[in-house]
Each structure stands twice: as C-alpha cells, then as structure tokens.
C-alpha cells in the first residue's frame, strides 16, 4: 500500500496549467525526490497532496484511502518559504503547532524539548523567534514538521540556506525517520542534495512528468561511459581507440568512452604504458546530468511558448 498515490491529477489556474496528468506512488520507508526546475509544478503537486487545493481532475490517496482532511494529522510539512511567528517564543510556537496537529499540550511540550536537544538548539527554547539566526529558525520549522510523528514527511527545499554541518544533522534525522518506516518526500531543484539519499524520483517539467522510477532503474538506463582519472607520467594511453573524447587537467583527466567500450581496456592500456595511476573511477551519470538532458529535451520538443518559471 503506497503512502501517497497520485492518479492522473490535473490542476489549472485560469489559463495556466500547473500540473498535467501526473501519477506517482510513494512507498513506506522510502525517500522520494520530486525534482524539477522552478515553476515546474512541484509546489502545486504538494499542495494538492495536503489538501490546500483540490485537483481539477484525478485522484489523491493518502495511506491507501482517498484524501480527507483527517489524514493531515499524519502528515508533516516543511514549506519552501519558511514562516514562524516572529514575536513568539520558540517553545510556545512549537507547542502551538504541535497542538494544531492534534497533540495535547504536555506531549507537544516534552517532544519539543527533546527535539530541540537533539538538534542542538535547546538553549533557544525560551527565546523569541526573531532573535534567532536563519539556520536556527529553519531547524525549528523542521522540528515543527516532525513533532507529531507523521507517517508522511513532505519537505520543500529542506536544506536551502543551511551550512553543511547542519544539513547533515537534518539529513541524519530524515534517514533515521526512513528507517522507522516513514515516507519522505523531497521537493527540490538541487539534485546533488538528494542524489545520495533518494530511493525514487519523479522529474517534473512544465507540470508534466518527464521521468520517474527508482534511482537505480533510472541510472542503469544511462551508460557508464565516463571515467575520472588522477595520474602522473605518460599520457599517451588517452589516444586509445575506446576513448571518444577527453579533457586534460593539471593532475588527471576526464574521459568519455565510446558506447559499449569497457573501461578496463583503457586502464590496462594505461598501466602497460607506465602511467602512474592514483585514481581511476568509472562515473555514474549524475542526476543533474540526467535532469538537464531531459529538461532540455522537453523544452526542445514542446516549443509552444511559456517561460520556465511562468
């Protein structure tokens, strides 16, 4: 039973189609990346998932049942544009948001304290939000989304503006949540952030689904024909017939092989020519590359006007 099931949903604002015939499933215990450039319909899709808007057609099911507002108590949401009451104390704020999600005051309070300790911001509990740094506010918002122990966690650009240490801290929390069987939805245009963690992705462009599936499946559809090398000594192996193009750097080179050619041959060839190899890595296509390729292709195909972020 998927946690989220979107079935051919469509949403139109005036003359602008925000989402067109989108279907996707998010499973228990998985991280799902909803990817796409700005204005591709990610936020509209999320809003339909949490009942902020109703799709014009198509169905939204949460936890195996057609959407109803009752289910929202099991959903945690971190919106892209952060918002907290500036003048309110952190603890009061968290308790308020927790209670809106159906917690009683005492539970909300004890969980808030526990979470703030875990995210190393326990000293902010009695401070007003406006006194805190942006990163701290983001952590508080993050806590607010998790306070009621939701089964579905929706995070819109969760790490934007965070330093690497704190981003890692939050990522660890989310990985932990996945281990507990929660479903996590990331919405982002920063591919590199989700690449390592997402189990599946959906790639949106102009409100349409370009590509979806498990990360492994998608990547396996693309050839592993790029090699990154760090070496010293003889460079003549670069003229091996398997190498299509290469780019030479100070300490190494990036190679692109002809399709179907084994990287092993190049490695052997290099060793035989006395090249001193420090590193030899066959690169997977990055999500970013796949993304750019697809988005470019989709814009090329459908040249019917409308800017990317319209």
């Amino acid at each position: 039973m998927p946690i989220v099931q979107l079935d051919q949903i469509r949403k139109q604002y005036g003359s602008k189609v925000a989402v067109e015939g989108l279907s996707l499933n998010i499973e228990r215990g998985s991280m799902f990346g909803l990817l796409g450039p700005n204005g591709s319909g990610k936020t509209s899709t999320i809003r339909m998932m949490i009942g902020m808007t109703v799709p014009d057609s198509g169905g939204v099911s949460l936890f195996g049942q057609p959407f109803s507002r009752k289910q929202l108590a099991r959903v945690g949401f971190l919106p892209e544009e952060r918002g907290l009451y500036k003048k309110m104390k952190v603890l009061d704020q968290l308790v308020f948001l927790g209670r809106l999600h159906g917690l009683d005051a005492a539970t909300a309070k004890s969980r808030s304290v526990a979470w703030c300790e875990r995210l190393q911001i326990a000293d902010t509990l009695q401070k007003k939000t406006e006194e805190l740094s942006k990163g701290m506010q983001q952590k508080i918002q993050f806590i607010a989304a998790l306070l009621h122990d939701p089964d579905l966690i929706i995070m819109d650009e969760p790490f934007s503006g965070l330093d690497p240490v704190n981003a890692q801290l939050l990522m660890d929390v989310l990985i932990d949540q996945r281990t507990q069987g929660k479903a996590i939805l990331f919405s982002t245009h920063r591919m590199d952030q989700v690449e390592r963690f997402c189990d599946s992705i959906a790639l949106l462009s102009r409100g349409k689904l370009l590509l979806s599936g498990s990360m492994r499946e998608i990547k396996s559809q693309y050839p592993r024909n790029r090699v990154e090398m760090i070496f010293t000594g003889n460079e003549s192996f670069l003229d091996h017939p398997s190498v299509e193009t290469y780019r030479l750097y100070e300490d190494g080179a990036e190679l692109k092989l002809h399709e179907g050619k084994e990287s092993r041959c190049v490695l052997r060839h290099a060793l035989e020519h006395g090249t001193n190899i420090v590193r030899f890595e066959v690169m997977e296509p990055t999500l970013e590359e796949i993304f750019i390729e697809h988005v470019k292709a989709s814009f090329g195909d459908a040249d019917n006007g409308g800017a990317v972020d319209a």
Partner: peptide, 16 residues
C-alpha cells in the same frame, strides 16, 4: 502579518 511571514503555509497544511 501571517501572509508576509508565510506562516499560513504551515497552518493551512493542517487547518482550513
């Protein structure tokens, strides 16, 4: 105020 501080997004994720 709630619109400018954008709290409504969080609020509307649970309430109407």
């Amino acid at each position: 105020d709630e619109k400018t501080s954008r709290i409504f997004e969080v609020l509307l994720a649970t309430i109407q």
